[in-house]
């Protein structure tokens, strides 16, 4: 079911089709929350909270208003707002202590390198580097590159001009690249 079909189902019968909305968007809402909050427990709670807010809001909207929603951007807007107020309550995102100090290879050299573990390790490192970025760059990067929203959608979500969003995404990418290179250098020295 695409978002347009989903919206017209929601407009007709919110209670019957809400579960389809959650199923269709849970991975992206969860990913946004996870990358903005930095830990899985908060991410699950805030992702849930995002859908609860969405449900309550949809209950007050007219059918026409529901049909006209830009679902992806709308949910991202709620998710970001919930993450920000959760973040304000809980301070900065948790940055794992092992930034720049990747686990020493534990597998005996004779064994075939475990690709999945390597992938997980690299993923964890990127996640902590992203978590270390200043808020505005992290948010822009998460929406553009993790969630795959267009610049126009992000501009709408963040209430900023498209040019500003593009600049933040670019700056964020450059910062992240620099941080990653620094981490790799440190690793090769160690």
């Amino acid at each position: 079911m695409d978002d347009q079909a989903l919206l017209s189902h929601l407009a007709r019968d919110l209670d019957a089709s809400f579960v389809a909305l959650v199923r269709a968007h849970q991975d992206r809402v969860y990913s946004i929350c996870l990358r903005l909050l930095g830990n899985t427990a908060d991410a699950e709670e805030i992702a849930q909270d995002t859908f609860i807010r969405a449900y309550r809001a949809l209950g007050t909207y007219s059918e026409d208003r529901i049909r006209a929603l830009q679902m992806r951007g709308w949910l991202a807007t709620i998710a970001i707002r919930r993450c920000r107020s959760a973040g304000a309550r809980r301070r900065a995102p948790t940055v794992p202590l092992d930034i720049g100090h990747p686990a020493l290879p534990t597998a005996p050299a004779a064994e075939t390198p475990h690709l999945h573990v390597v992938g997980q390790e690299s993923k964890r490192r990127w996640a902590s580097l992203l978590a270390g970025l200043p808020d505005r760059y992290r948010t822009a990067l998460v929406l553009r590159h993790v969630d795959d929203l267009s610049y126009a959608e992000i501009a709408e979500v963040l209430g900023k001009p498209e040019g500003t969003v593009k600049a933040q995404v670019h700056r964020g990418l450059a910062l992240l690249r620099a941080a990653h290179e620094a981490a790799e250098r440190e690793e090769s020295i160690a």
């Binding site: 969860y30 990913s31 992203l130």
Partner: peptide, 12 residues
């Protein structure tokens, strides 16, 4: 960097 970020999409 873009590819790494895409890889951060996580199943709920």
């Amino acid at each position: 960097v873009d590819a790494a970020l895409r890889d951060l999409r996580t199943e709920a």
